[in-house]
Simulated assay, not measured.
Amino acid sequence: MGRIRINNIRVHSNHGCLKEEMLIGSDYRVDLDVFADLAKPSQSDKLSETVDYVHLNKIVQEEMAIRSNLLEHVAKRIIDRIFLEIPTVNKAQVEVAKINPPMGGDVESVAVSLKHQRP
């Protein structure tokens, strides 16, 4: 078993329940961990035999572009697409963080983290 980690994917999106968030949007950070058997690609050196992190980034970018009220919903959609499109992934964890959330205080970020395993 191995892990592929993508750190600090930065996107601007319009998630949130407040009208301002829907219109203006906010900055987000996404961290992603996927777990798969990496024994074969570590020997073969073939991209076709591993989990392509370009594909993972594309999934994150596309799902972050779809507006949601809750970060939990966005995170679950990202994991669902990973399992749908990349059958070699056995487990995935995603953290979606809203930078400078509008919550009436000096808060750097608020984050939701979900971890799921293929059934």
Rank of each mutant, 00 (worst) to 15 (best):
80 D>N: 06
37 D>Y: 07
89 V>E: 13
102 P>L: 11
100 N>W: 01
106 D>G: 01
5 R>D: 05
53 Y>L: 02
61 Q>P: 06
83 F>T: 09
106 D>L: 10
58 K>E: 07
83 F>H: 08
77 R>D: 10
84 L>E: 15
75 A>W: 03
31 D>A: 04
105 G>T: 07
49 E>V: 07
33 D>F: 11
103 M>R: 04
59 I>M: 04
102 P>M: 11
74 V>Q: 00
79 I>R: 10
97 A>Q: 01
51 V>T: 05
15 H>L: 00
119 P>Y: 10
44 S>E: 12
61 Q>V: 13
111 A>D: 04
1 M>T: 01
60 V>T: 03
115 K>T: 15
59 I>R: 11
47 L>W: 10
31 D>K: 02
29 R>T: 05
79 I>Y: 14
47 L>R: 08
91 K>V: 09
94 V>D: 02
45 D>N: 12
59 I>F: 08
119 P>G: 15
46 K>I: 13
107 V>A: 05
84 L>C: 07
19 K>P: 04
64 M>V: 08
68 S>W: 03
16 G>T: 01
31 D>S: 12
3 R>F: 11
72 E>F: 07
76 K>S: 15
76 K>D: 15
119 P>F: 14
77 R>I: 08
60 V>H: 00
49 E>I: 12
72 E>Q: 14
47 L>I: 08
109 S>D: 08
88 T>Y: 07
15 H>A: 01
78 I>K: 00
77 R>M: 04
61 Q>L: 13
99 I>Y: 02
14 N>F: 10
24 I>N: 11
